[in-house]
Nucleic acid binder design. Structure first.
Lengths: 189, 189, 189, 189
DNA sequence: TATGAATGAGAATTCATTCAT
DNA sequence: TATGAATGAATTCTCATTCAT
């Protein structure tokens, strides 16, 4: 049922999704839904959190598995793009389905956005400390990077041949991030 | 009534806004709404288009009024940030209220996003032609820039002291954009 | 405006006709309608009565202009069919548009039906008195005749070539009425 | 709920009947209505068809159960009058409630009227073939008979003592039909 | 006389939620 | 655990009617 819910929410958005949509897709009765979840909102928030955790952890692991900034950037982008290709519903749910809907979600969204920012801010801070990137408002840069990448990922989801353009996207965006952070490696300081 | 509608839509999003919300805010009767607009969706799409045109034209004028790439970047950012400070509802409506709602809006949103991308892509192409920025996937860069800036603008809207931080945001983001496009001026090629 | 009203009411029926339909067809403002008529219902009842009077008087004159029963029958049918051909809206209004709608009309309808019955009952009574037709429940016969003729007239209205079949209908129905009343002339008593 | 619906529709007509009328008469909630039927129109059309089928089958069986034309006429009239006495709502629904309302019903009404005409036309054709009635436009006669009988039946419904006058109506109308078709039996050819 | 912007009661319909089984 | 018939508050939209100009 959770599988169905994620997919349907991702496809139609929170408001346009009815409980009946979900349970009929999952082939259970409406009562069954309310046996497991108190209401529609709770389910959505739950799914959002779970999905957000999955994405954040995946990206964080990508960061942790590398040591140099450029490698971290590339690893994060590869992970994110990979999820967009293989689990588009996850991305859709996080970036689209929950925008401007239930008030209870606002805080969860803020937490998710903040964690996403931290994914970028921490490696960036470290790179700044080591003088691999110039002084800058590191938080602002990190916020901007999350927006930049999400937008590109959303663009990918709209394309039919997502899997084929994935590598190009990773390459282009890796360069974008390194340029945007002013990483000296690229400019050859 | 249009004023009310923009503000309420911006505050609560399309779905959560009821006709009653709008008319009671505008202090008119429900019938009055339907005297001027055929339905809720038409009104929203109309407001979205009008608002989108306003934003796009303002940003385009900012581009046209300058000749050098860095000046164009700064002018666009100043315009955008200015709108965010003085007309936050406009930004909220365009970036949040219409996400994932009515099908009729999807196309309008796509058109708006595309125009926003063009705002950046055209100056960037020109700069690339003149060798002021390195070779790059200029469309991808432009898409990423729109995402980056929107995200930062949205962050601004969440702050109480929007007007005070506006200048800093413009400065930081100008640098971000110049770095992200690889503009040589800043790095002193 | 009355012209428009009759036509529109006849076309769409009472409920489906809006004041706006009528006034826009008559090219006047809504306010003008309410200057002349207190409300929709009053207009309809007024039109119904006027139209009913016109039909009844026309048919009554047809009766009065002839002396023998068969001639009276034929004259009434010719008049009725003629109205159906040249003023179909009149017939539509009386037989269809006002069925099962406003309570205030029920009485008017009853009066109209009764007059229609009298159109047939009076000549029939006279013919019975003179032994031109057999003894019968003359009222029942008259009621049945009105139903029979209305049904045939309604059938005519549905045909495209109303004017061409009109004569045949008059002939067939004249025979029908003479048979149905048991008029001896036809059977040659 | 179906019982309620038929009665209320019959009493007030399609347009004047609200869903609330039906459900409050049936003592269920509005949602219950929409659980069983997609909308008001569908329900009405459904009831109309079902009711029409019932009436047509009943009348057809009356025809089939007799062999001579006069007996067939009497049997049909007895059946029809009987339904009018015991199920007045059925007749009201078919003859009044659905006149000039929903477009979707127009076709169903036409089909019903045609079947009603056939009820009379078939026995009449047979009688004509056997020279029991004179040559005539048999279709026109059949159409007229349906109108005549419906009108008389509607007159019955308006009377309080329906059950007491029923037999008289059957007798009078049997004679009417036999006369109207020119059946020789009555005139003693 | 004539206008038409404004009104708001009322109708159809949706859908999250409940609860007896 | 699981069901699904039943509920009714809430929403969109219509349209007869009013009234200031």
């Amino acid at each position: 049922m959770l599988q169905s819910a994620v997919r349907i929410f991702a496809e139609r958005g929170y408001q346009a999704t009815t409980i009946r949509d979900i349970v009929s897709d999952a082939d259970v009765a409406i009562g069954t839904f309310y046996f497991y979840f108190p209401d529609k909102e709770t389910l959505f928030v739950h799914l959002y959190e779970e999905t957000a955790d999955f994405l954040i952890q995946t990206l964080q692991q990508a960061v942790n598995s590398r040591s140099s900034f450029p490698q971290q950037v590339k690893a994060v982008l590869q992970s994110y793009v990979s999820i967009a290709v293989f689990e588009p519903a996850v991305v859709e749910l996080l970036l689209v389905a929950g925008v401007g809907t239930v008030p209870a979600l606002a805080e969860k969204r803020a937490v998710f956005r903040e964690k996403l920012v931290q994914i970028w801010q921490r490696p960036l801070s470290e790179a700044m400390d080591r003088n691999f990137v110039p002084l800058q408002n590191e938080r602002q840069t990190a916020v901007a990077l999350t927006g930049a990448i999400d937008q590109v990922i959303l663009g990918m989801l709209a394309e039919a041949d997502r899997d084929e353009i994935a590598d190009g996207v990773v390459q282009d965006m890796t360069r974008f991030v390194l340029r945007a952070t002013g990483h000296y490696g690229e400019q050859g300081k």
